[in-house]
Design a protein around this nucleic acid. Sequence first.
DNA 1: TCAACGTCTATTGTCGACAATCCACCCCGC
DNA 2: GCGGGGTGGATTGTCGACAATAGACGTTGA
Lengths: 229, 229
Amino acid sequence: MSTPIPDIDDDKALRTSADRVFEALQDAIVRGDIAPGSRVGETDLAERFGTSRGPLREALRRLESRRLVERTPHVGIRIASLSPEALVEIYFVREALEGMAARMAALHMTDAEIAGLRALLVAHQQDEALRSDTAYFQQEGDLDFHYRVIQGSHNAALTELLIGELYHRIRMYRYQVSAYPNRPQKAFAEHQRIVEAIEARDGDLAEMLMRRHISSARRNFEQLMKENA
Amino acid sequence: MSTPIPDIDDDKALRTSADRVFEALQDAIVRGDIAPGSRVGETDLAERFGTSRGPLREALRRLESRRLVERTPHVGIRIASLSPEALVEIYFVREALEGMAARMAALHMTDAEIAGLRALLVAHQQDEALRSDTAYFQQEGDLDFHYRVIQGSHNAALTELLIGELYHRIRMYRYQVSAYPNRPQKAFAEHQRIVEAIEARDGDLAEMLMRRHISSARRNFEQLMKENA
DNA sequence: TCAACGTCTATTGTCGACAATCCACCCCGC
DNA sequence: GCGGGGTGGATTGTCGACAATAGACGTTGA
């Protein structure tokens, strides 16, 4: 108890209480401020977020849709915990979706967007030169890169699925196991070649490279799991 | 079609009222019993489904997550209507995801599942021989075929995304525009070749064929839209 | 006549209380 | 001592009432 949860977002931009709780609670879950797998009571949560159980339950239903909490009727809710196996499953989904996103990005990104993407890579290169092995920063940068490619697809359904649903779970896992090594220099090189393909407006190549990029990250992760077992 | 809303599911298997309303309302939206794009009041809906506004709002939040209703704070909710452009976007997502599903189905489906899949095709062939142009039936059969391949991937994340989220919107569109022609005989031939690839355990081929199958359905749809405009 | 303002009503957002259900613990019988 | 049933407590599910907001309508002034 005490003040375990980072302050509720008091910003009034999100009008309703249910929306604020939804964002705050999602953030708390993703950041691991609430232990994954733990059972939580509605009354406690409502009190903690300074609202009543009505809006809280609405927020919970949305989090349930996003697979961030699991609910069993008349029993309660528990914070979702992503197993390594489930993460591997998501890797396959990412490979398919982001591959398609890269293809469409190569076809539909504006020149300005591509320029911004390359600028991002340059920034990463400099940062990486300094702090070569701090995986965390690279991970956030990695997310940034993928975000931009996804949005570059100009496909709202695709973007919503990836950023709105999948990425929260992935980030949750990254917080759970604090920064597992993820070959930053190699990933960076792959990013660079993806951008080159996009610049060349080569959809086939962009998709292929992105799929290889993600599937090799998956294999790296699977290897890591095998070693730790 | 007489009763305005298909009877609320009185089955007690779904324990809570919010769950029942969620399913019933989703069904009503998908079937078009509530006009797409129409504004609906919470009080009306609650009364219509025989519950109070509390559970109804929880159901609405989940439907909002599935993009079946759109909500603007302090104003109300409106039933989502899927534009042709949005459907095209979803076709691309399907192409990526179902392509991956076909690949994984070729690798992971059990022999029994494959046998069932082929049996389904045989049944389709016979039915289709009789009613060669009734698109509706073929469509439901089409869904059935795709369902099985998706579940054959044995990837829960993939299955949940496709069947749990995307397919409701697709079905909604099929009800909206009553049975647009979708080249049943050609689709059937494509299904057959996909099954052959799965039987051969050829993941690469299965994915390629499935992607072609879906993208050619998309192009067929886009062509149709152009003609009607 | 038109536009801007203010009021007013209908609808949504929020809350607290009550009812229903489950789980843990205890008691009783074997 | 052990298993089964029952009871108590706590938690979730549901409801009706109240507060707050937005949009519609009428009014007033130029």
